[in-house]
């Protein structure tokens, strides 16, 4: 399952807007179409933020419930997905605050969750081990980042969102979004280096 950012075109934007208008008018089927179309994107972002499938699913559900409740607040000039991701970002931040005590457990699960992804990718066992080690270190470093850095990295470097979208989601300027991305990347690199050294 992979999100293709290039799919979001003008046509889709129009369709989203028309679906939102229908949903506002009481057409629940239109809202279900929006849910089916964007739940993967929202789930992926939520999973990257929480590293737990059940938490991510709860966040997606809550995000769509809130979106449905607040459809009247959505302004047509922004993309529906951008608006939706803004809701999810806030929910993830709240969820992270509540589960700070579970950080160690989350990291453990995240490392475990990586195992199924890395096995059998590369034929050479030595190279496979090295890749596995690097991925684990990267995941640990990402999870150890503060929420504001992590969400930026996920939006830009994992979900490959454009800078204007990121700026809208975070409520800042495009220049501000670029600056935040740079800082987050530097923070990630600073964290991953000692982790790679530890494993060696």
């Amino acid at each position: 399952m992979r999100f293709d950012a290039s799919v979001t075109g003008r046509m889709e934007l129009d369709t989203d807007v028309s679906l939102v208008r229908r949903a506002r008018g009481g057409d629940y089927g239109a809202f279900e179409q929006l849910f089916e179309r964007h739940r993967d994107l929202v789930y992926r972002f939520a999973y990257q933020m929480t590293s737990r499938r059940d938490d991510a699913e709860d966040i997606v559900q809550e995000a769509f419930v809130r979106a449905y409740q607040n459809l009247h607040r959505y302004r047509d000039e922004a993309k529906f997905t951008t608006w939706l991701l803004r809701i999810v970002t806030n929910l993830c931040t709240d969820q992270a605050r509540m589960s700070q005590r579970r950080t160690a457990l989350e990291q453990q699960e995240a490392v475990g969750a990586l195992d199924w992804m890395t096995i059998g990718d590369i034929d050479d066992p030595v190279q496979n081990l090295e890749e596995d080690r690097r991925k684990k270190a990267l995941k640990r470093a990402l999870n150890a980042l503060p929420d504001h850095h992590r969400s930026i990295i996920i939006l830009r470097d994992i979900e490959e969102r454009e800078y204007p979208d990121i700026a809208t989601i975070l409520g800042c300027t495009i220049g501000g979004a670029k600056l935040r991305v740079l800082r987050a990347r530097r923070a990630l690199r600073d964290r991953i280096a000692p982790l790679l050294g530890e494993d060696k």
């Binding site: 992979r2 699913e57 979900e159």
Partner: peptide
């Protein structure tokens, strides 16, 4: 590595 992290387990939504 970050691109590889885009792979996530299937959801049950």
């Amino acid at each position: 590595g970050l691109r590889d992290l885009a792979e996530v387990p299937e959801h049950q939504l």
